[in-house]
């Protein structure tokens, strides 16, 4: 069975239980120290930051399935993660944004994401390849 996990949450979320850093205009620091707004991030920013960090590894996580959740305004997304195609399920609010390789921010309900966070999003669909992270274990 797929592993269940949940992405970040924060008690100081501005709206709908989402972390504050997804709000348009939030300042993000890349691993090399460069500052960018969240809406200006590109795929290479994540890839290069992971390379610099040394502790984190970027994985490709393909959306396999999107199902309704019992929780209001939430969905369960099943990902196939990394080379081993590990099956991982996450339960998130429909407006939660994921970063899709070569495309940018995407959510299950882009209109709601834009309404709540002012962050422009594409529609997250089955087959999309999202950026995820793996923590490299210490040797």
């Amino acid at each position: 069975p797929p592993t269940s996990t949940s992405p970040h949450s924060s008690p100081s979320s501005p709206s709908a239980g989402l972390p504050p850093f997804f709000m348009k205009g939030s300042i993000i620091q890349l691993a090399d120290g460069e500052l960018k707004r969240v809406e200006d991030l590109r795929t290479e920013d994540f890839v290069q930051s992971a390379e610099v960090s040394g502790e984190l590894k970027i994985d490709s996580s393909t959306v396999e399935r999107i199902e309704c959740s019992r929780t209001p305004n939430a969905v369960i997304i099943q990902f196939s993660v990394g080379e081993n195609k590990a099956q991982v399920c996450v339960e998130v609010l429909v407006e939660y944004p994921f970063f899709v390789f070569g495309q940018g921010w995407s959510s299950c309900c882009p209109d709601r994401t834009t309404q709540l966070l002012a962050l422009s999003c594409a529609k997250l669909s089955v087959g999309d390849v999202c950026i995820s992270l793996t923590l490299k274990s210490l040797k």
Binding site: S26, I27, Q29, L30, F46, I58, S61, G82, K136, S137
Partner: peptide, 25 residues
Amino acid sequence: NVEPRSVPVFPWHSLVPFLAPTQSD
């Protein structure tokens, strides 16, 4: 006196979910 509020800066990895178990190289 009102002190200027500093703008929060978030680390890049905050934006990316950890979806995979810890791996070794």
